[in-house]
Design a protein around this nucleic acid. Structure first.
Lengths: 174, 174
DNA sequence: TCAAAAACCGACCGATCATTCGGTCGATTA
DNA sequence: TAATCGACCGAATGATCGGTCGGTTTTTGA
């Protein structure tokens, strides 16, 4: 709270004038994070250009990697343990987190379904595959933010892995 | 500290008789975690049975999934933000984390290299592919521990994804 | 113009935190 | 037996925490 007070220039008591308590404050930040991610996705959905499902999925990966870069702090929040601990007792928090993850997963799943229709993607369960892909991309992002390894050098390998996951020979017709 | 005191039955002051301070205590726990994981891996290396590199990698995935189940608390520690924050200023902590991740990555990489030799695995950079695979498996584990989705239902999809990543048709000769 | 409302301040509060310290106790050594 | 030791206790310590409150300033709108 002291750090926040200094950063915003507001006195300690003023913060509690706008937010009931720390939990309420955190929930507001989380809702804000959710709104930002959902709006970024809505914008991406409008401007994206892709000829088939495979390109949609590849675009989704690139979008997510880009998002974690521009929204570094919000994703640092989502990569902490605290929100998920809070979600176990606080339904509002849980609903918020689920909205965020559903949005992120839908980006992948949508591409997979389209790809199944047009034949550019082979996969059994779109939802399950979407989760596995999301776990992979997000795992790379974590390796990067935690500075265990520089994941920047992994983007090529990551995109290659995605293509292998989705097509039968890893070399889809493009 | 109070929680730890109650759990161990030792008085508050006694803990500080054995450990210099909280940081020292945490470092001891981390070193202990590292030793446990390394010894579990050494044991696995002895008893595993695999006919080729592909089976080694599949075994590694199963081993990691099993490990996160039996060593739930240590991995909960590794999935928190704190250790990586500490690693940025504390070289001992950083070295410890690197040892753990190198060990875990080596399990995957070893199988990839053997698989490249015997032809059961197609991949360019073994280290990079190992990281991508690790990120994927660990990402699934996180989805599970944070209870966003039940990742238990994803194990089949996960193993399928691994096979796709490593072979040209996802149906390796077995 | 002015009074009510809202925003804001910072001193203050009790609770909790990590850590310290004086001292007890049982085992080992001189 | 006396001296020394390390393990252990738990009350006490000061710092920090989230949160409150009385009073001041700013904004609002009739």
């Amino acid at each position: 709270m002291a750090e926040l007070s200094k950063a915003t220039g507001a006195a300690g008591g003023t913060i509690f004038h706008h937010f009931k308590n720390k939990e309420d404050l955190f929930l507001n930040i989380l809702e804000n994070t959710k709104a930002t991610i959902l709006s970024e996705f809505a914008h991406y959905q409008k401007v994206r250009e892709c000829r088939n499902g495979l390109e949609m999925v590849e675009g989704a990966v690139a979008f997510y990697l880009n998002l974690t870069g521009t929204l570094e702090d919000p994703f640092l929040l989502l990569h902490r343990h605290f929100p998920y601990e809070m979600a176990e007792t606080n339904p509002v928090c849980r609903a918020c987190l689920e909205s965020i993850y559903n949005c992120l997963l839908d980006i992948f799943e949508e591409g997979l379904r389209v790809g199944q229709q047009d034949g550019s993607v082979q996969t059994l369960s779109a939802r399950n595959t979407a989760m596995v892909m999301f776990a992979m991309v997000d795992g790379i992002v974590r390796l990067n933010t935690y500075r265990i390894y520089n994941a920047g050098a992994l983007y090529v390998s990551l995109m290659d892995a995605c293509r292998r996951l989705l097509t039968d020979n890893g070399q889809a017709a493009r």
